[in-house]
């Protein structure tokens, strides 16, 4: 079953589909299959869109506990609304926007309660071990590992706006600008220029440090 709903949207020369594990054009078809009870399609959606949801949550600098709960809430709600999505091909934007709203809600209630939880993730590194991590452990890769940590440090020290945007853009596969827009509440048209600016700023920091 092939559903021909290839999004024609392309913004600032960045095509809707920027490649990756899940072809974004297939998202609509996967949603429809999942609605029909196809668990494999659901799994493919999770694989393809989890990093986007996680990136949005991380971009908002929640505590780990809050980040985990928001992530789960978003997926539970997505499962709940699965058969009711008006535009299944925009499931990524739906997830990104739901994640954003849940994050803002958390931040608002924290501000209200003035809880002294530490939202800074500066030195926080996931304890999950990925295949890439194991590679990094080998001695030959030590230099590469250090380079990556430097880059991460400089990224963390960027201004809030840039840090947020880049954290969302880092999702894999790369998010479409529509998804970025839904994730951060910024206009699609401003993402391209902002992205350039933020990456240039990061590049300058890295150059100053002599990295890369």
């Amino acid at each position: 079953m092939r559903v021909g709903t290839v999004p024609s949207a392309a913004y600032d020369g960045v095509p809707y589909t920027r490649g990756g594990a899940v072809d974004r054009a297939d998202v609509g078809a996967l949603v429809r299959s999942a609605v029909d009870g196809d668990a494999a399609a659901w799994k493919a959606l999770v694989e393809g869109l989890s990093p986007l949801v996680w990136s949005v949550v991380r971009a908002h600098r929640l505590s780990d506990a809050d980040a985990h709960e928001v992530y789960q809430t978003v997926w539970f709600r997505f499962a709940q609304h699965l058969g009711r999505l008006r535009e299944p091909e925009k499931a990524g934007s739906w997830l990104a926007s739901t994640a954003r709203h849940e994050c803002l809600k958390v931040l608002r209630s924290l501000r209200r309660l003035t809880v002294t939880s530490d939202p800074h993730l500066l030195d926080r590194v996931s304890e999950d071990r990925t295949p890439e991590q194991s590679v990094l452990d080998s001695e030959e890769a030590a230099a590469e590992s250090e380079r990556i940590r430097w880059m991460w440090q400089e990224f963390e020290e960027l201004g809030e706006r840039c840090r947020q945007l880049l954290r969302v853009l880092m999702a894999s596969p790369p998010p479409s600008y529509q998804e970025v827009s839904a994730a951060l509440g910024i206009a699609v048209g401003s993402i391209g220029p902002l992205r350039q600016r933020c990456l240039r700023r990061l590049r300058a920091r890295l150059d100053a440090r002599g990295a890369l």
Partner: peptide, 24 residues
């Protein structure tokens, strides 16, 4: 540079496996 950042995120801040499982 964006691609390098993407690789760094996959290493330093990936989706926790437990969360991925819960979503599935």
């Amino acid at each position: 540079l964006e691609e390098s950042l993407r690789q760094a995120a996959a290493i330093l801040d990936p989706v926790p496996a437990e969360l991925r499982r819960l979503a599935v």
